[in-house]
């Protein structure tokens, strides 16, 4: 059997994904260095096409620098996506673990709750949540996390139920370990691989939700984001194609990169017999 590293890094698609994602993360972290000025500042004439003097990607309807918008938008978008995923994974894991470990009535209650959340169309639910809570970065994180945790809870529950039946868990019971020690010390570390895969793919979904909400004008006010740029540029699609196209392509590439990495993780963590 090849090692995890050989299977993960030996995959050329993973390389492409990692390169793009690393670039986006670096830009997001050092946004102030790459584009020191406020992305909302008017810095030139409106509707300058890409390649104009000083504006690599042109300017928008108010004369704001599109490049600066992209750089600062990466920061907002990634932060909201990562935080909401972390929140969803944490909540979903705890709920799924408790349901899977205790079974019976606990399982019934927690799983009915999960199903309740799953039956509501998730995007409408997210819109309603942001509308009620009022748009802000924090509330976007909450809304995205609330609609994202049920699949995590289901994955963790199924894994916990499978691992729970293994003999080393019985051995821990026999040794006198307490329930929480068994659940968090013995069982959960053995459910990590599907969790990592689901979680990494969820970051991509979160980026899409955040962009869609921002497009609808429900994004964090005062913070540049990719979805907001598309929303602001959509009325000028025929005159200034780059206002929509450039952030759209960036979203596409980032989501694709994360999916490539997620799939690479999946192939590396769960090798099938066919790929032996």
């Amino acid at each position: 059997m090849k090692s995890f590293n050989a299977r993960f890094y030996g995959n050329p698609r993973v390389y492409l994904g990692l390169i793009w994602l690393a670039a986006v993360v670096i830009v997001a972290v050092f946004a102030g260095v790459f584009a020191p000025r406020d992305p909302f500042a008017i810095v030139g004439q409106p509707f300058l096409p890409p390649g104009s003097e000083g504006f690599l990607l042109g300017t928008d309807s108010l004369g704001r620098n599109v490049m600066a918008g992209l750089i600062h938008g990466a920061r907002t978008t990634l932060m909201i996506a990562v935080l909401s995923t972390v929140a969803a994974v944490a909540f979903g894991t705890v709920l799924g673990a408790l349901a899977g470990y205790y079974g019976g009535i606990v399982d019934d209650i927690l799983m009915r709750l999960t199903e309740f959340f799953q039956t509501i169309p998730w995007f409408l639910f997210a819109i309603v949540l942001v509308a009620i809570l009022s748009p802000s970065a924090m509330n976007l994180v909450i809304a995205i996390a609330v609609v994202s945790w049920p699949p995590i809870a289901r994955v963790v529950r199924a894994e916990v139920m499978a691992v729970k039946a293994r003999e080393f868990v019985q051995a821990a019971v026999v040794a006198g370990q307490r329930d929480m020690g068994i659940l968090f010390g013995q069982i959960l570390p053995n459910t990590l691989s599907p969790l990592i895969v689901t979680g990494s793919l969820m970051v991509a979904t979160a980026i899409l939700i955040e962009s869609a909400l921002s497009f609808l004008g429900l994004g964090a006010p005062g913070q540049m984001s990719w979805g907001f740029m598309i929303g602001a540029g959509r009325s000028f699609l025929r005159d200034a194609w780059w206002l929509v196209t450039v952030p759209g392509v960036v979203i596409l590439l980032t989501v694709l990169a994360i999916n490539l990495i997620g799939e690479g993780l999946n192939d590396a963590l769960n090798p099938r017999l066919a790929d032996l």
């Binding site: 293994r166 003999e167 080393f168 019985q170 051995a171 821990a172 026999v174 040794a175 013995q186 570390p189």
Partner: peptide, 13 residues
């Protein structure tokens, strides 16, 4: 009371 399990592969974490 302690136990020695059947499957040496499943019984160790």
């Amino acid at each position: 009371v302690q136990m020695v399990f059947q499957d040496p592969f499943a019984s160790l974490n």
